[in-house]
């Protein structure tokens, strides 16, 4: 890192330097500290995981993750996370629309409530959801006579994942919708489009990047979710066992290789998702000038 934090910006003909000249002090200190701390807390630990996994070799990782039980767990995690994120995309869009476009009593309360899944500890959410959806719970008891069981089935996992991913789409769409120029809608209507046509052909396409970003964030969160799911999941191999739980089970069975391999696969996927989100946002910024 550059130690010449106060280099004179006047040295116009200076050779290439790491940092663009600036009058502000403290770059070396803050940058150095941030990078060091980042390395210590995040990068080195994650590198340890990758190192462990590299000891297994690619085919070792493949052999472990392609075993039927691991595949089933990954399938459960990804399938249900996709479904939950999709539901959140639809309802998140709706909630964002209602919150930005309409005035009604309790709107601010509703707005605040959206963030609850983010602030509520996952274990608390887990036992609360289990209490509600168990066969003798408030809602579980209602649907039990119909032969529907929610808690301890994939449906229960799905509900927990909808809960944890709920804020993401709302919060990504909201600012975009608030900035959306309504004159475009008026123009569309003036040109003879019905309200439905305007929404489908004009408004939604503009919101799409934000919805996709929110979808990806909700999906990423759901794939890794553990605390709220284990209380309501049933944890049955091949049926209601999620990948993070399988990591824990592998650990508890002294199977470090298994835990490491699954964890590495999940880490790779979260990194790809993060990349996708960044690309989406970059695209959206170029195209629409906002996130």
């Amino acid at each position: 890192m550059t130690a010449t934090a106060s280099a004179s910006p006047r040295a116009a003909a200076a050779p290439w330097r790491f940092r663009q000249p600036s009058a502000l002090p403290g770059f070396g200190l803050t940058f150095g500290f941030a990078v060091t701390w980042l390395s210590l807390i995040v990068l080195i630990p994650l590198a340890a995981l990758v190192m462990r996994a590299s000891g297994l070799g690619l085919d070792g990782i493949w052999r472990i993750t392609s075993s039927p039980r691991v595949l089933a767990a990954l399938q459960t995690s990804f399938g249900l996370s996709l479904a939950a994120a999709a539901v959140n995309a639809v309802f998140g869009l709706l909630v964002a629309w209602v919150l930005t476009r309409y005035e009604f009593p309790g709107r601010r309360l509703l707005d605040a409530v959206v963030d609850l899944p983010f602030a509520l500890p996952t274990a608390v959410a887990g036992i609360a959801l289990a209490a509600i959806y168990a066969p003798n719970g408030w809602i579980g008891g209602l649907v039990a006579p119909l032969g529907i069981q929610i808690a301890f089935t994939p449906l229960g996992i799905f509900i927990a994942l909808v809960f944890v991913g709920l804020p993401f789409v709302v919060r990504t769409v909201q600012p975009v919708l608030a900035d959306f120029d309504r004159e475009i809608e008026e123009a569309s209507a003036t040109l003879g489009a019905t309200r439905r046509q305007t929404i489908v052909r004009v408004v939604l396409p503009a919101l799409l990047p934000a919805v996709l970003t929110g979808f990806a964030l909700a999906f990423g969160r759901a794939v890794g979710e553990y605390g709220s799911v284990i209380f309501i999941a049933g944890n049955l191999p091949f049926k209601s066992e999620i990948a993070p739980l399988l990591i824990v089970i592998q650990l508890e069975e002294f199977n470090y290789a298994g835990a490491t391999a699954i964890a590495t696969v999940m880490l790779a996927i979260s990194f790809l998702l993060l990349l996708a989100i960044n690309l989406l946002q970059a695209f959206s910024r170029r195209r629409f000038g906002h996130v």
Partner: peptide
């Protein structure tokens, strides 16, 4: 994420500025 390019205007730096970081460093 969420980065926007920012314009950095450079004004002549005061030589004293850099040293000011020292107490901050100590505190850190």
């Amino acid at each position: 994420m969420l980065l926007r390019p920012i314009a950095v205007r450079s004004t002549p730096a005061r030589p004293a500025v850099h040293c000011a970081a020292a107490p901050a460093a100590a505190r850190l």
